[in-house]
Structures are given as C-alpha cells and as structure tokens.
C-alpha cells in the first residue's frame, strides 16, 4: 500500500470533530481499517467516504455502531443485488433480441 494514500487518524479526528477512541472502536469492529506506521495510526483515503457515512449515521441518525455494521452490510448486499440484476438484464437482452 502506497503511503501517500494514507491520512493520519488524528488529522481526520480534528477535521470531523471526532475522538480518536471512536476511530479505534470502528477499527476494532472492522468498520474501517487502521494502518499503524511508526506507532502512528493512519487511514487509507479510499475509506474516507465510508468513514464520513459512518459519522453521519452515528451523529445524525443516532444509530449505534452495531446498527451501522448491519446497515453497511445490508447496503453492500443491496449493491451486489443491483449489480446482479444489471448483469441478468444484460443477459436477458441476449434472448429478447432474437
């Protein structure tokens, strides 16, 4: 993993006004992945969108972390199903045009 894609967890905490312990809990629950380099915690920038979503669900909808885990899993499943529907629709076109 290239290091320039990593953002210090502390920087994100300041930016999003969250506690570092919150980030650590998210990591423990597997909701985000923390990289530790020279005893400092980093988050890959690809996870920022996910982190923002978690913060919004937590702060705005008061969903607890277990609930967020369930929501994210269901959203992923929904996304997979949507992709499958698209793929099946494309396959169906193969026969519809005959």
């Amino acid at each position: 993993m290239r290091q320039e894609h990593l953002i210090a967890a502390q920087t994100l905490c300041t930016h999003y006004n969250i506690e570092i312990s919150f980030v650590a809990t998210l990591n423990q629950m597997g909701l985000i992945q923390i990289e530790i380099i020279e005893q400092e915690q980093f988050i890959n920038q690809e996870q920022i969108g996910n982190l923002e979503k978690i913060i919004r669900l937590y702060n705005e909808l008061h969903v607890n972390l277990e609930g967020i885990d369930v929501v994210l899993n269901l959203l992923n499943k929904e996304k997979e199903l949507k992709n499958e529907v698209t793929s099946l629709k494309n396959r169906l076109r193969l026969y519809e045009n005959d």
Binding site: K53, R56, L57, E60, L61, V71, L75
Partner: peptide, 14 residues
C-alpha cells in the same frame, strides 16, 4: 423526525 430521518436518509437510500 428521527424515525423518518432513519427511513429516508440519503446514506440509507443511495
């Protein structure tokens, strides 16, 4: 409000 926000929040309904 909270009940409806949980139902219609854009993060829950992409």
């Amino acid at each position: 409000y909270r009940k409806l926000a949980r139902k219609f929040h854009p993060d829950i309904n992409p």
